[in-house]
Computed example of a mutant assay.
Amino acid sequence: MKRIAIIGSGPAGLMAAQAALEQGAHVSIYEAMPSAARKFLMAGKSGLNISHSEKVHQLLGRYDAPDGRLRAMVSAFNASDIREWMEALDEPSFVGSSGRIFPVAMKASPLLRKWLRKLAERGAELYTRHRWTGWTSEGLLSFSTQNGAVQVESDATILALGGKSWSRLGSDGQWAEILSQRGVYIDPFEPSNCGVEVGWSDRLLSQHEGAPVKSIALKMGDKKSRGDIVVTRHGIESGALYPVAADLRKELSSSGSATLLIDLVPDVRTDALAKRLASANSKDSMSNRLRKAARLDKVKVALVNEVTRGSPPGDASEIAALLKALPFTVSGTAPMDDAISTAGGVSWDALDEHLMLKAVPNTYCVGEMVSWDAPTGGYLLTACMAMGKAAGAAAAKAT
Rank of each mutant, 00 (worst) to 15 (best):
W132G: 02
K214T: 12
A393M: 06
V196T: 01
D247W: 09
K45L: 10
S215W: 09
L205T: 00
G183V: 01
A302K: 03
T382W: 02
P191G: 00
P191W: 01
K250N: 12
A43K: 12
L119Q: 01
V307F: 09
V198C: 04
D247T: 10
L303Q: 08
V360H: 08
P11W: 02
L322H: 07
T333I: 07
E197F: 06
Q181R: 11
T270C: 15
A394D: 08
A12D: 03
L290H: 00
L218A: 05
A176L: 10
S347K: 08
V150M: 14
L111N: 01
A36S: 15
K223A: 10
H208A: 04
I262L: 13
T342Q: 03
G68K: 10
A65N: 04
K224I: 12
A176P: 08
Q18G: 12
G96D: 15
S167A: 14
V346P: 02
A36Q: 15
G388H: 05
L261E: 06
W135N: 01
D373R: 06
Y30A: 09
T270G: 14
L351S: 11
D352S: 10
E138D: 10
S93M: 15
T382L: 13
T382N: 12
G235R: 01
M336K: 01
I158M: 14
G388W: 02
G367D: 09
V213P: 03
L273P: 05
S75A: 15
S254E: 12
V95A: 15
A350S: 15
H57D: 15
D263E: 11
D228A: 07
G239C: 03
R168L: 13
A12N: 02
